[in-house]
């Protein structure tokens, strides 16, 4: 999910051959609801999201979350998978 328009996300999916879809949260409604809005964070001054992951159960309860502390922070995919296995095993 990103605040980018669908056309830009389509270029990202195509260029990187991503096996998943990217949703467009242009109004930042979901980004704001999850508390990860970065107001004016884009070079253009537009609102963007703090890079974050949320694992939700079928009732919408947050089982696990991670958010970046710095622009360059990205969680390792192995850490994400480990968190998913641990949470869903409970």
């Amino acid at each position: 999910m990103s605040t980018d328009p669908p056309e830009r996300s389509a270029r990202v999916v195509e260029r990187n051959r991503l096996p998943f879809d990217i949703l467009s949260d242009g109004e930042s409604a979901l980004t704001r609801a999850f508390g990860v809005l970065h107001p004016g964070g884009a070079p253009s001054g537009a609102d963007i999201a703090v890079p974050s992951h949320f694992l939700l159960d079928s009732n919408g309860r947050v089982l696990w979350r991670w958010s970046a502390g710095r622009i360059s922070d990205r969680i390792h995919p192995g850490e994400v998978l480990r968190a998913i296995h641990e949470q869903l095993a409970q």
């Binding site: 669908p6 996300s9 609801a33 964070g41 890079p51």
Partner: peptide, 22 residues
Amino acid sequence: RLPAPTRPDLAAGIPDITLHDQ
């Protein structure tokens, strides 16, 4: 540094909105 995330406002569940994919 990025702004610290706030607590998700999900008391009523995930927002009932429809987004569009790429």
